[in-house]
Amino acid sequence: MSRVELLTPEGLRVDGRRPAELRKITSTTAVLSQADGSAYLEHGNTKVLAAVYGPREARHRTLVVHDRAIINVEFNIAPFSTGERRRRGKNDKRLLEMASFIKQSFEPVVITTLYPRSQVDIYLQVIQQDGGVLQACINAATMALIDAGVAMTDYVCACTAGWVEREAAIDLNHIEESSDTSEVTIAMLPKSGKVTLAQMESRLHVDKLEALFTLAGEGCKQIHQVLDRTIRNRAEELAQKLAV
């Protein structure tokens, strides 16, 4: 077999992680001054910038819903984000699909009925990709929405898990993703454990699915703690400044 060895005999992965180990997460909110809310998030080498505008007046009269807000997601991948430069058109089916995934995972969580006749825009820009783009985007969008003060019943935390050779592994990187691994992305509400998105594009034996779901769920809870710390620190910092 000429494939890359994804798991060493000691059970370590290509980047030296153990199977159930997440990559380092770096997160900041309020990175853009013009947007109502924004966040920058890194999962290892995957880097995403999210901006939220709104709730604001709906841009197109035809889209207005009289009793709730609509959520609009625009998803874009920078041409320089991959090893090989590649430009994607605005109407790339792949991008539109990703945008609709993200939209669907937020629709049940954002309390849209508080903002009748309005629109919430979420713009996502992938700056660098090294596997797990969808999870990074969902996590970044959550942070940006909270930063914008949009009411949500819970965080939405996303995590991927895949079957790397003979073991279930979490938070796959690009090498693991591209060597024919079955991968599942889950977006979860960490407090209630409800799942708002489960996405899988490859074949996987049904017996192995549950293990992946459990593992990804654990990952979501860990990610939630990291994001919550950033949000809380930012909130406390602002509260301090405004308390004077």
Partner: peptide
């Protein structure tokens, strides 16, 4: 941290 400020996050 100012103890009179009670900061919460969603959920």
């Amino acid at each position: 941290k100012d103890p009179t400020i009670h900061v919460v996050t969603p959920a």
